[in-house]
Amino acid sequence: MSVWFILIQVLNGIQYGLLLFLVASGLTLIFGLMGIINLAHGSFYMLGAYLAYWLTGATGSFALAIVLAIPLAAVVGLVLEAGLLRTLYRRSHLDQVLLTYGLILIFNEGQRLLWGGDVHSVAIPELLTGSVRLTETLSYPVYRLWVSLVCLALAGAMYLVIQRTRFGMLIRAGACDRDMVAALGIDVKLLFAAVFAAGTVLAAVSGAIAAPLSSVGPGMGDTVLILCFVVVVIGGVGNIKGTFFGALLIGLADTFGKVLIPDLASFMVYAVMAAVLLWKPRGLFA
C-alpha cells in the first residue's frame, strides 16, 4: 500500500467525518442543552434533502434552495417544539423517545405522500462540478472539498456562538439549571424554542448540502440517525468540541475499517464507540 493511497484514505475519512459532524451537531445541541432525546433528527435531515431536491427543481438554483430551506426548517422546528415537545420537558426520557419515534413514522409517511417512493438526486451546482486529479486513475470531486470547508466553517461558528456570545451563555446556563435562569428573568421557553429550531435547521441544512452527494430517497434519515447518536455519545452529550473530534474519529475509523479489515467494517464504528465509552465514559473531552 503506497503512502499516497493512505493519504487519500485519510482525506476520505476526514471528509466523511466532517459531514457526520454537521449532521450530529444539531442533535448534540438539542440533546445536550435541552435534555431532549430527539429520534426525529434523522427525519429533519431527510426533510432538508427533500427540500433541496424540491426547491432546486422549482427555482432552478441549488443555492436559493438552501436559503429557502432554512426558514422552512425553522418553522417546522418551532411548530413541533411549541405543539408537542414543550409539554414533555419535565417528563421522562421514555416519553420523549416515544413521541419522537412517532414523529419518524409521520415524517416517513408524509415524505411518501408528498414525494412518493422514487429515489431522486440533486445536481451539483455548476460552479462546483469540477474535480481535482489526485492520481492517474483517481480524482476528487470539488463539491466534496467544498462541503468539508462549509462543515469546518459551521463548526467554528457554532463554537464561537456557544462559547463567546450572550446567547450561547444563556443556552449553557439553561442546560445547567433552567429554573435558576428563569428566576433571573430570562424567557426560558423562548430560549428552548430557539435552540430546538436551530437544531432542526442544522439537520436540514446538512441534509440539503449532502443531497448532491447522496441519493434522496425514502428512509434516508434512518441510517444517519444511528451514526449521529454514536458520534454524540463519543463526543460527550452537548459538547460541540467533543462532537467535532468524535465525528472525525468515526469518519476515519469507518474508512480504514472498510479498507483494512473489510470483514469487520460494519462493526468498526461500534467497536470505537465501545472503546471510547470504556476509556472516557462521559465523552472524549469530559
Binding site: 500500500m1 503506497s2 493511497f5 487519500i8 484514505q9 476520505n12 475519512g13 471528509q15 466523511y16 492520481t135 486513475t137 483517481l138 466534496r144 447522496s214 441519493s215 441510517t223 469507518d254 474508512t255 480504514f256 472498510k258 479498507v259 473489510p262 470483514d263 467494517a265 460494519s266
Partner: peptide, 22 residues
C-alpha cells in the same frame, strides 16, 4: 471482491481502493 456493509452508501474508501487496483 469488495464487500460493502449493507446498507452503507459511503463508497469513497472503496473507490480509492479500485483506483489503486486499476
Amino acid at each position: 471482491q469488495i464487500q460493502v456493509p449493507f446498507p452503507t452508501e459511503e463508497f469513497q474508501a472503496y473507490l480509492t481502493q479500485i483506483a489503486a487496483l486499476r
